[in-house]
Design a protein around this nucleic acid. Structure first.
Lengths: 238, 238
DNA sequence: CATACAAAATATGTATGCACTTTTGCCCGT
DNA sequence: ACGGGCAAAAGTGCATACATATTTTGTATG
């Protein structure tokens, strides 16, 4: 028992955790807005689509529900979660705290390779800016997740990642298209501040950035685009 | 199959979620230290114990793994998680931020009934102090969870609850017996500060309290009681 | 023509069976 | 005795079957 052997047999065939694969796919579909809040996720369909049984699909849904991305009610079809306005506000409040910790741990300690990696993401973000809305949003999220990963702290990574995805989902509910796209410049400034600046300065910038993202979406949108079919169709009823 | 239907007969068949029931039971067993970090949790045994099939037990384990209380590795028996020292530190760092938010939202806004409810918990904590170590720890955790619940913010409640349980588990690994028991007085002071005091004052007290709990355990223990069998047995190898 | 109601179609909840993996423990060669 | 290896036991991974719950569809009726 003195030694641990790496059992990395996960290539394609069996073994590679299929539940995790489905979770990853769904997370991405959600963050890219291929799936919208409220969209139905029947176990059968998922299983068929991913070539697994309901058992696996169900397990993946359970996992995503634990992450707050999916709403799971007894005997009911799972749906992509629909965060309330209050949820969105709370999610961003927590996000600010968590990411401040990330910045504090990283300030002045980024390696050259890390800076390059982050810059590459922002670059991709910039390129996807006009053609692919969904991709752009995913990359913006990935920027923050990567940042967290650079702390090397598993617990922090996990919570930041989860809260970032939930924030992205919240924005899908409350933000108008394109409202968060000026974030590209802010991301570049963040990299610079974290690389060079003192921790306090960098933290402040991150706070500012996140508050800006939240404000652009949460405050501007006059209290949520009501997803209720009745309200949506109101203007069309003659 | 054994003909035993020992429990779980609530509301006939449609039973309130049995997975959740098992999760609750296990969480409590862990926080009360009836289960220790590293203890094995075979699906069969759990299923038999709770009168359900492996399917349900497995699902519960998945849920707890998502909460960081259980370690789940492929083809291996699930075990109660064993947080590393770094994990424990990170968990407490995050906890401080989250609970500061709780206090900020609650400061000066506690109702009479809420104060009474909290006081009752601390009272029970005090009584359990000498006879039942596990119960005392659970009540201390419950105090913080209840506090979070009083914000009425589902997202915050969820994260605080989870992090409190993980913190409790961490203490099970790193703290010596009885090291966190003077917390009773601190809890009483907290109630008072939140009830009357300004938000900043109350937040500071909460920070202080949590840092104290963490310090008593994490710093005092000379760098973690290494759970590695090799190190543990070092003094015994004659 | 709108509504109520019944029944098919659809989906979830859970147990169980089988294949595969890990662990345990025994047996044998040295 | 001691260690190595092999086979049984124990445990997980996953699909499937069946019971139950929900949703939709179809139809009869006031």
């Amino acid at each position: 028992m003195a030694e641990e052997k790496r059992e990395q047999k996960r290539s394609g065939k069996t073994g590679g955790d299929r539940v995790a694969a489905i979770c990853t796919a769904l997370r991405r579909a959600i963050i890219e807005r291929a799936l919208s809040p409220g969209d139905r996720l029947p176990e059968d369909s998922l299983g068929e689509r991913f070539g697994v049984s309901r058992t696996i699909a169900r397990s993946a849904l359970g996992q995503l529900a634990a992450e707050g991305l999916v709403d799971l009610r007894r005997n009911r079809i799972a749906v992509v979660a629909v965060p309330s306005f209050e949820d969105a506000r709370d999610i961003f409040d927590i996000r600010v705290d968590l990411e401040r910790q990330v910045v504090r741990h990283l300030a002045g300690k980024l390696t050259e390779a890390q800076v390059k990696q982050l810059t590459a993401i922002v670059e991709a973000e910039h390129q996807a800016r006009h053609c692919a809305e969904g991709i752009s949003i995913r990359l913006a999220t990935e920027f923050h997740v990567r940042l967290a990963e650079m702390t090397g702290k598993p617990v922090l990574i996990r919570y930041v990642t989860e809260i970032c995805y939930r924030a992205g989902l919240s924005l899908a509910v409350f933000s108008r298209p394109h409202s968060s796209e000026c974030a590209v410049n802010e991301h570049l400034e963040l990299i610079e501040a974290i690389r060079t600046g003192p921790a306090d300065k960098a933290c402040a910038l991150m706070d500012e950035h996140l508050e800006a993202v939240a404000s652009r979406a949460l405050l501007q949108s006059s209290g949520a685009r009501s997803r209720d079919l009745m309200d949506i169709l109101a203007p069309y009823t003659e």
